[in-house]
Design a binder for these strands. Structure first.
Lengths: 341, 341
DNA sequence: CGCCGTTCAGGAAACGGTTCCATAATCGCC
DNA sequence: GGCGATTATGGAACCGTTTCCTGAACGGCG
């Protein structure tokens, strides 16, 4: 393989000078730099990142841990992160995380991420436990969390409680009083979780309006379309009075619920108003009212924070409204309408 | 940072012995190995992959290039690849590829993948051009393609022509004669492409049955639900006789078409039978007849081939029915039924 | 003119592993 | 008992960079 020594020889300079010329660090005469660059181009030289990171201690590589890649939100975040990292000359090493406590997951934190192969870690939508955070800290890895919970580190997040509140208030303003909620799994137990917070916002809004939802009107489901379908069947598929509105914790769940309603002969929005969360790319097609968030943008921002943490000079210094929650927006479409009187 | 020298000192052996003990290469007495291992564990030693790959020339890292992460098929493949690589102790570096000719894409091949940071490349669903293949060859990167086209290298793929044929024949057997096709973009021009081949299979089956579809019954669309929705509106949303059956080049397109049919007051399957391709996780919920494929399994297989190409001993030697297309299976659900008479 | 600061370049020492080579002990076996 | 094969270990070289240190040339300035 062609090494920097070859470039140096061809350009008639020392390895040290060749390195400086190519990396742009230290003094190099313009003419020398040109000679080195053209020599490098001639023989197709590309620096070995391993050798470089061995001495500099930086790998220009960040690990991304993510529980799913095939949910819309996570896929969008991943794409945003990838684009931003690549633009900054960084690599993205992907770890698809399983649930807490599984041995593969432990191995990711104790081995893969602990090695000197990543400079930093972006955790998206994962609930970190203390030992995981500790493992990262011990190795001095910068950590940025996007959503999820755990880890005192830099965290980017929307205000999930406000989201739940906003969606619920929208339905309340439309005159609904019996509003059901399709919540994320575990949203009841732990409050310090995305879906716990959304549920919390829902309950707060209901309470503020003087309603207290019956337990049967809150159904937990995983955040998929079939999950929403099944949960909605459970919620709506019985005789007797039904909720007139439904707050689904994600758009995919809402889509499933719409399909279930159709199956049950319930017309949306006439008999049932539905609001989701995400701003899924299919929301428009389904005419779904939703609280949009912008996962691609969130991914990009996470990269910004990481680069800043790593002291990368390529990124602007002032952190734009640091600490503020990421933006969300209620988009009203025809899946929600005034309550039947 | 703690290096192998520290481990060696603590265990009272040389660096060479420590290295052998930990890597399992060469002769080491059992007792010595234990001493070294416990010393390493005590001080939390983890070898630096950079240093190791510098001397061995292997990085235990493979680059994955993929055009989308947020389409079901691609997400599943990615998950399968990730799981398999991780199990083999490899890292996955992700490159989300844009269209041909874009500068970011060129940079991925000429720089990111060309460096000594990946041992091999898995290209999923990408149409490689010669310069891209050449760039990889020049750097002696093993290349495995999953679907897509271009690159004479190892290619795993389903038989897309057979898939198109199978789906179409299913509809023909049900008595349909006017069968429309929602094809992938560009499927008309290039034949050497996934969607070109599926369309080809469709046309072959139609021809064999003595039908020749009118050009208006073939509509091109991108492989998304909204794409299928729009394409189906175009296909069906006019007065006059309509096709009685529809072969959609992917399940997501089929879902969109189902939604469009519903919007137009066309009942599936009474007025219109629909068949898709993929075995999407939502297909069951939509009751969609589809030609299933198994992207997760395909990803795993691609990793098998890569590991074999890299001479990794951890993988079984005999390549199971090498060269054969990956499995597919027609799953009949209630979206397809006998033609109205 | 002397001196200092700046610019330029090269030699050599890292970085943290693996592996080649040499040496030595042990063992089985004739 | 000698010999070769096997096992065990250490020293040193090496992988391909970056960077520290040193020295030289040059220019400006007091």
């Amino acid at each position: 393989m062609v090494a920097i020594g070859d470039v140096a020889r061809l350009a008639g300079v020392s390895k040290a000078t060749a390195s400086r010329a190519l990396s742009g660090n230290g003094y190099v005469a313009d003419e020398t730099r040109r000679r080195v660059e053209s020599a490098a181009a001639d023989i197709g030289y590309i620096a070995s990142p391993d050798a470089a990171s061995l001495v500099t201690g930086r790998t220009k590589n960040v690990g991304v841990v993510i529980p799913f890649v095939n949910r819309w939100f996570f896929g969008e975040v991943l794409e945003g992160i990838e684009r931003a990292l690549l633009a900054a000359g960084y690599d993205l090493t992907l770890y698809n995380l399983s649930e807490r406590g599984r041995p593969e997951r432990t191995r990711v934190f104790e081995f893969f991420l602990a090695r000197k192969r990543v400079d930093a870690v972006i955790a998206v939508g994962v609930d970190l436990d203390e030992s995981e955070v500790a493992a990262l800290e011990r190795r001095e890895k910068a950590l940025v969390c996007l959503g999820g919970s755990g880890g005192a580190a830099a965290r980017l997040s929307i205000d999930d409680r406000a989201v739940g509140q906003l969606a619920t208030e929208h339905l309340l303003h439309l005159g609904h009083s019996r509003i059901a909620h399709l919540a994320g799994i575990g949203a009841g137990g732990q409050l310090d979780t995305v879906h716990g917070r959304r549920r919390h916002g829902y309950l707060d809004a209901m309470a503020a309006a003087g309603h207290s939802p019956s337990p049967a009107d809150i159904v937990e489901t995983d955040m998929t379309m079939p999950g929403g379908y099944r949960a909605a069947l459970q919620l709506l598929g019985h005789p007797g009075p039904r909720p007139t509105a439904l707050f689904a914790a994600s758009d995919e769940v809402a889509f499933g619920a719409m399909r279930a309603a159709e199956r049950l002969g319930i017309t949306v929005p006439r008999d049932l108003s539905i609001v989701g969360v995400d701003g899924h790319e299919y929301a428009e097609m389904f005419d779904l009212t939703t609280v949009e968030q912008y996962p691609g943008e969130q991914g990009r921002s996470a990269v910004d924070v990481v680069l800043r943490l790593l002291g990368d000079e390529s990124v602007a210094d002032p952190l734009p409204d640091s600490g503020a929650p990421m933006p969300t927006r209620l988009v009203v479409r025809s899946s929600s309408t005034a309550a039947p009187r």
